[in-house]
Design a protein around this nucleic acid. Structure first.
Lengths: 223, 223
DNA sequence: ACCTGAACACCGTTCAAGT
DNA sequence: ACCTGAACACCGTTCAAGT
């Protein structure tokens, strides 16, 4: 009675932008960005490939919409954040986990100009920097740096996890990578070889948070 | 006389992995990763599309090889680096400029596991951190953080520069982006709106270096 | 060993035709 | 207004056939 929808769907199972995006997310999670096909998507929605184009502009738009949906959902579920420094860690880890669970998101997040998803992350981190008392002049730089770090490192982490065929567990991947690093040319890669063993006992998430703290330390030092 | 090549090319203009990679780089710079086509590449090399497969495994390998070539070249041209802190800025700016000039590199750099290109950047930055006196325990974290920041922010910057059709100059792009930020919803994006004007007079490279200094400040604070 | 180019198995996107 | 599905203009990759 209360609210009259602007556009009431005619049938429960009729096509809609929302249903298309949801199906795309499922498909992306299963097969990645390359596997997202209009034919497969259409077949899952029991319709023709062309029908999707009535609701969505094309594949790029669809990918952007899927990314926005995922990031918006994750950020809205953050809840109470607490003190600024803790909040920044939470937001960072939220992005990290989103990209870890949906690796295809990172390619979209990197594609500029910033869409809704990247702007939401920027906004959330920026607010906490204000609370932290960062001077107005450096707020922009600080927020950009944090966003760049958070998205950049999360993406790299997700990328490292992929592309072992067949997929193997974390510790095995790290052991293999460490071995690869140790076998690098001694003259060309002395540093990489020297930290290779650190890779074996490496906890991606903890390392990621440690990096946030490093950036926060730098921000604190510049007031 | 001195050095006998293992594999002497038969004719000056015969196909080789090197020539293919060079042609691919040219094509990538002109039309981007999506425009890199084996048919076009073959036609530029005056050969058939299939011929390329005798020298290169496929498109992914070709993209990786092109990225490695570009990054290796840029890093080898760095020359004398000077004091550690200055050197780190130089390396960072080098990556920034490479990605700015060859935006397609960023997608490859983000794709894991780290290839030769990413490892070279990691190695270079790591060596300087050693010189800086960073404790062994935090060296790995510090280097990872720096690499993540440098590649992540450089990629985002390059992405922001693209995708205006037709391409417009820097200041116009920034003015348009600033306007977009100012028109965001006041309740949802208070912070982003408040820093929008900073975007207008924004110097990407300077901002990027400022971010490096922020990270370096954090590293210095943790010994 | 190295190259050719037609052929295969796909794509995203469009569009006349339907309801 | 919304959907259908064949058709178009591409792709990356393979492979028999050539030199």
């Amino acid at each position: 009675m209360a609210k009259a929808k602007q556009k009431a769907p005619r049938r429960e199972d009729s096509l809609s932008r929302e249903r298309i995006v949801d199906a795309a997310i499922d498909l992306l999670d299963e097969v990645g960005a390359e596997g997202l096909t209009f034919r497969e998507l259409a077949s899952r929605l029991s319709t023709g490939a062309g029908a999707i184009y009535w609701h969505v502009d094309g594949k790029d738009t669809l990918l952007a919409a899927a990314t926005d949906a995922i990031v918006t959902r994750a950020i809205s579920e953050l809840g109470a954040l607490g003190a600024a420094r803790v909040a920044i860690r939470k937001i960072g880890v939220c992005v990290f986990d989103v990209i870890d669970a949906h690796p295809w998101v990172s390619a979209e997040l990197a594609r500029g100009p910033w869409g809704s998803a990247a702007l939401q992350i920027f906004e959330q981190l920026g607010r906490q920097l204000e609370k932290l008392g960062v001077r107005e002049k450096v707020r922009f730089t600080a927020a950009s740096t944090l966003v760049g770090y958070v998205i950049g490192v999360s993406s790299q982490n997700a990328a490292n996890a992929r592309l072992f065929d067949p997929p193997v567990d974390r510790t095995t991947v790290l052991a293999l990578e460490a071995k690869r690093w140790k076998n690098l040319d001694a003259d060309a890669y002395p540093f990489t070889r020297s930290v290779a063993s650190a890779l074996e006992t490496h906890d991606d998430r903890a390392e990621f948070v440690a990096g946030i703290d490093l950036v926060l330390g730098g921000i604190a030092a510049s007031i």
